[in-house]
Simulated scan of single mutants.
Amino acid sequence: MKDQMPPGGHTVDASVNARAWNHIAAQDEADPAVSTPGEVPRTIEWTCWPGRGPGAEWIGDLSRTRVAELGCGTGEHTAYAAENGARLAVGVDVADQRIAQARARFGHLPAIDFKVGDAAEILDEPRLDVCFSIYGALWYAEPTRLIPVIHNRLRPGGILAFSVNAPRDGELPGRRVDNLTLTGGARLPVIHYSYGADAWRRLLAECGFADTQVLPIEGPDGSPYRTLVIRTRRGAD
């Protein structure tokens, strides 16, 4: 359902979403893959359907770059950046248990750092070259609050790349409250922000981004979901 921003809504969003993802993390604890050193992926998957959409080339050569992933989960794509030449790879997530898992899996890598918190509040690395998010903070945080923070942290010409679900047919855009279903059947609310391609272009342009590209990626046959894979650049100062 579509919802209106409540008083103190930014804090509410982060708290609600952190609770949900911490429960998912606890559910996954039995899987050693989330609590022991992990295998770094060979590319970046921007959708939940492997092989659909672009790969790591979407953000280019990461050699000697300063990179941040917002909504990093268990850290595999932050690890990809660290393993592929980034001089700094920062992963940020609101869920402290997810960050604990990310550290257990990839904290041994050089040039990697994981942080717990709301990206709009704790992203403080100056002059990032690349900021990216895969169904992460750009999906779960209010974009008119987060995008200006990202703009201020990127160097001129720096890349912002992210993937989000597009609104389904008949859905209204904006703030939405849905549910995650745990293995035992319990349902937990999650808050996300759903916009179409034109709305994302407008939001990014209003915050000083340019050269925005939007790739709509269709799901498998019969899937009601469509992912938007987006890349844009900070304009010159």
Rank of each mutant, 00 (worst) to 15 (best):
M1S: 15
M1Q: 13
K2R: 15
K2L: 14
M5V: 14
P6F: 02
P7R: 14
G9K: 12
G9A: 13
T11M: 06
T11H: 11
D13E: 11
A18M: 05
R19P: 01
A20R: 08
H23V: 09
I24R: 15
A25F: 06
A26E: 13
P32Y: 07
V34N: 09
P37F: 06
E39M: 11
R42K: 13
E45R: 13
R52Q: 10
A56H: 11
E57F: 05
W58C: 03
L62H: 06
S63N: 11
R64D: 13
T65Q: 14
L70C: 04
G71Y: 02
G71E: 02
G73D: 01
T78S: 13
A81Q: 11
E83D: 14
N84P: 06
A89D: 10
V92R: 05
V92P: 02
Q97P: 01
Q97W: 04
R98C: 11
Q101H: 13
A102K: 07
G107P: 13
H108F: 02
L109R: 13
P110T: 04
A111R: 12
I112E: 11
I112T: 13
A120P: 01
I122H: 05
I122P: 04
L123Q: 07
D124W: 05
E125S: 09
R127M: 12
R127V: 05
R127D: 15
C131M: 06
I134M: 02
G136C: 10
A137T: 00
W139C: 11
A141P: 00
E142D: 15
E142L: 13
P143E: 09
T144C: 02
L146C: 07
V149I: 13
R153W: 01
P156C: 09
G158K: 07
L160C: 11
S163R: 04
R168E: 15
D169Y: 00
G170R: 09
E171L: 03
P173G: 07
V177E: 14
V177Q: 14
T181W: 09
R187Y: 00
L188I: 04
L188T: 01
P189Y: 02
I191Y: 01
H192P: 00
Y195H: 15
G196A: 11
L203V: 03
L204T: 09
A205F: 10
E206C: 01
C207P: 02
A210Q: 10
D211H: 12
P216Y: 03
P216E: 12
E218N: 04
G219S: 07
P220I: 05
S223Q: 01
P224K: 11
Y225D: 14
Y225M: 08
R226I: 02
T227S: 14
T232F: 02
G235W: 01
A236C: 03
A236Q: 09
